[in-house]
Amino acid sequence: MKSSNLIQTAAVFGALAVIFGAFGAHALEEMLVSTGRLDTYETAVSYHFYHSLALLMVGILSLQFPDKKRINYSALFFIAGILIFSGSLYILCLSQVTWLGAITPLGGLSFILGWVMLLLSFGK
């Protein structure tokens, strides 16, 4: 994946994290509180935003170190983590479809693998 594509993807994910956070805090707060899902939604937004920033960092690192091929795997795992972890929690909170909680850990595993790939990119 090209560095510019990674940075653009990070920018889109970052903007979406802010939008989802604001939407949850204003338009959905009453519904999230009444269903007991406010903490879950906030967790989804937090991990979404953290990993949008991590993806931005990976894009910048890939500009500086184009020979580090595992950086792309790190980016792909971060993208998958955002989609699976945060995405499943967003849908769970909005739809109350509880089986989605079963796939959320796969997104968490993707986040971990993204960080491990980043470590391996610069490890000896």
Rank of each mutant, 00 (worst) to 15 (best):
M1V: 00
M1Q: 03
M1S: 05
K2D: 15
K2M: 06
K2L: 11
S4G: 00
S4W: 09
I7S: 02
Q8L: 15
A11Q: 04
G14S: 13
A15W: 05
L16Y: 07
V18A: 13
I19M: 15
G21F: 07
G21A: 07
A22P: 06
A22M: 12
G24I: 13
G24R: 10
G24V: 11
A25F: 10
A25K: 09
H26E: 13
H26I: 14
A27S: 09
L28K: 15
L28P: 11
L28R: 13
M31T: 14
L32Q: 08
R37K: 15
R37Q: 14
L38D: 11
D39N: 10
D39T: 14
T40W: 01
A44K: 03
H48C: 08
H48T: 08
S52I: 08
A54N: 05
A54R: 02
L56E: 12
V58I: 11
L61Q: 06
Q64C: 13
D67N: 11
D67K: 14
K68D: 01
K69F: 08
S74F: 08
A75E: 14
F77L: 06
F77P: 03
F78R: 00
F78D: 00
I79W: 07
I79C: 07
G81Y: 08
L83G: 03
I84C: 06
F85P: 01
G87Q: 07
G87H: 05
L89E: 01
Y90D: 01
I91T: 15
L92W: 11
Q96H: 12
T98M: 00
T98V: 10
L100V: 09
L100G: 05
L100Q: 03
A102L: 13
I103P: 02
I103E: 06
T104Y: 06
T104L: 07
P105T: 01
L106E: 04
G107H: 05
G107V: 03
G107I: 05
G108C: 06
G108E: 04
F111V: 00
F111Y: 14
I112V: 13
L113W: 07
L113H: 05
L113Y: 05
G114I: 01
W115Q: 01
V116A: 12
M117Q: 09
L118G: 06
L120H: 01
G123I: 02
G123R: 11
G123F: 12
G123M: 11
K124W: 00
K124D: 12
